[in-house]
Amino acid sequence: MATPEFIRHLRTSIGRQLLWLPGVSAVVFDDQGRVLLGKRADTGGWSVIGGIPEPGEQPAETAIREVYEETAVRVAVEGVVLIETMPPTHYPNGDVCQFMDVTLRCRAIGGEARVNDDESLEVGWFDVDALPELEEYALTRIKRAQEAGPTWFHKMGEEPEGQQP
């Protein structure tokens, strides 16, 4: 995930200390029920599409923008899948961030999946029973998005989904 300019500006004032940030993940399905994934340039791993909202941007707008920027696929947002605060992430440069993730279920409405920026090495559609290797948090979001049930909220005292204590 590329670091937005407003965060680089904040870092000049706050240094490497913990920065609390919103994040938006988009679990995108096509008409065949396949899920759209991107192979991230920063980690080399496959994941659902996501990013950081620009100041003042709504989560649904972020999902629509990020999916298009990274994959050239147009989406419609169908609903909120889950909202969860993730454990802090420590980056190699010393920065520390903690994200509150809003995961949205989306439906592809146009475009052709392709690498559309420098954040992805590959993008593609995958049958949910033939996914590439994914981290547990991505699998959890896909599973919950398939269920299309009520929004999932983290309960006090529970470990975050897909995270080990």
Rank of each mutant, 00 (worst) to 15 (best):
130 A>D: 12
86 M>Y: 04
65 R>H: 03
126 F>Y: 12
105 R>E: 09
66 E>G: 01
48 V>C: 14
123 V>W: 06
139 L>W: 04
122 E>Q: 13
128 V>G: 03
46 W>E: 09
137 Y>K: 13
53 P>V: 00
118 D>N: 09
132 P>K: 04
45 G>L: 12
105 R>P: 02
114 R>Y: 06
51 G>R: 08
123 V>T: 02
128 V>W: 00
78 E>G: 00
49 I>H: 01
38 G>R: 13
104 L>T: 06
122 E>W: 03
93 N>F: 10
116 N>C: 03
132 P>D: 05
110 G>V: 03
100 M>H: 11
43 T>C: 08
111 G>S: 01
84 E>M: 07
90 H>Q: 13
45 G>F: 11
60 A>Y: 14
76 A>D: 15
114 R>F: 09
38 G>C: 05
98 Q>W: 09
86 M>V: 08
136 E>W: 02
81 V>W: 02
40 R>A: 14
85 T>L: 09
97 C>V: 13
113 A>G: 04
124 G>N: 08
79 G>A: 05
46 W>N: 07
66 E>R: 13
99 F>W: 10
121 L>D: 04
66 E>K: 12
59 P>Y: 10
130 A>V: 07
133 E>D: 14
121 L>A: 08
119 E>C: 10
62 T>N: 02
114 R>H: 11
98 Q>T: 11
81 V>E: 05
73 V>M: 06
88 P>E: 03
69 E>C: 01
